Computed example of a mutant assay.
Amino acid sequence: MTNASIHTLQDLTNRFFQRHWPTDAAAAAPRWTMWEPFLSAPCPNYNRNGCYALLGGKQILYIGAGMAAGRPGDRYENHGISTRLKHVFLADRNRPNWHKLKDLWRDRGVDGAYTLGFDECQYLALALEHYLITHLRPALNKNYKPR
């Protein structure tokens, strides 16, 4: 499937969690959060492990996961999604707390993002990423080109 919308992403995520979210988990399964205003506000879930979706128009162009592999207290703690998104944007030196897209992503039409951060069951983030990519086949995920 290509040309998937955020609604399709949310529906597939709900289906995934119905199958895989533990019934005895302390919290409900996480939900997608829009990054707004895009690039001029802090990235939602920046300090959590989780998934992100890059949009162009209203279509999902790319799905990724950000996982901090560090131990408590080391330099990668609390740097999940935000660290991974550094391949997409840079700090805007002319405007504090703003970001700008790297040329590659701007040229591909990226103009928005959603994130989903895990407080528990973080191991499911990588499985969710794989599930969403195989079902949505976003145009910019290299390993899952549309057929």
Rank of each mutant, 00 (worst) to 15 (best):
D24A: 13
G70D: 00
A27E: 15
Y46S: 11
N47D: 14
F17I: 01
L39I: 06
T33A: 11
A69P: 00
I133H: 07
D119I: 03
P22T: 05
A25K: 08
F17N: 05
N14R: 12
R84I: 01
D119K: 08
A69L: 14
P37F: 11
K58E: 15
A113H: 00
L116R: 01
P37W: 14
A68T: 00
W35G: 07
L128A: 06
A29E: 14
S5D: 14
L55C: 14
P44Y: 05
K145W: 03
C51T: 08
E120K: 01
F17H: 10
V110Q: 01
G112Y: 05
P44G: 02
I60D: 02
L12R: 08
L12I: 09
A127M: 10
N94H: 09
R106K: 13
D11S: 09
P30E: 12
R19L: 13
Y76K: 12
L55K: 05
L85K: 07
T134W: 11
G64N: 04
A113Q: 03
L136T: 01
F89Q: 04
T115Y: 07
G112D: 02
N49V: 00
N143S: 15
A127K: 10
W105R: 00
A65W: 02
A69I: 10
Y131W: 15
T83G: 14
G73P: 02
K142H: 15
C51A: 06
Y46Q: 09
T23G: 11
R84Y: 03
Y52W: 10
G73W: 00
A27C: 06
S40R: 13
A127R: 11
T2L: 14
G117N: 07
L126Y: 01
R48C: 02
E129V: 03
L126I: 13
Q18R: 12
G64E: 04
G66W: 03
N3P: 06
F89S: 10
K102V: 02
G56V: 03
D11T: 10
A65M: 09
Y123W: 11
D111M: 05
L132V: 11
G70C: 04
R71F: 00
G56W: 04
P42M: 08
Y62L: 12
L140W: 11
D107L: 10
L136D: 08
G80P: 03
V110W: 04
G64Q: 07
A4L: 03
L55R: 05
I60K: 06
C43S: 02
M1S: 15
L85N: 04
T8I: 12
H99C: 07
L124E: 08
I63P: 01
S82D: 14
F89K: 01
R147K: 13
A127E: 15
H79E: 01
Y62D: 05
R108Y: 05
K100T: 06
L85S: 07
L90W: 13
N97Q: 10
A27L: 15
K86G: 12
H79W: 00
C121M: 05
K58I: 08
Y144P: 02
V88G: 07
R108S: 09
C51H: 06
K102Y: 06
A53V: 12
A27Y: 14
Y52H: 08
S40E: 12
L90A: 09
T23P: 07
L104Y: 15
Y114A: 04
R108G: 04
G117D: 01
H79D: 00
Y52F: 15
T23I: 06
G57Y: 05
T115W: 05
T2W: 13
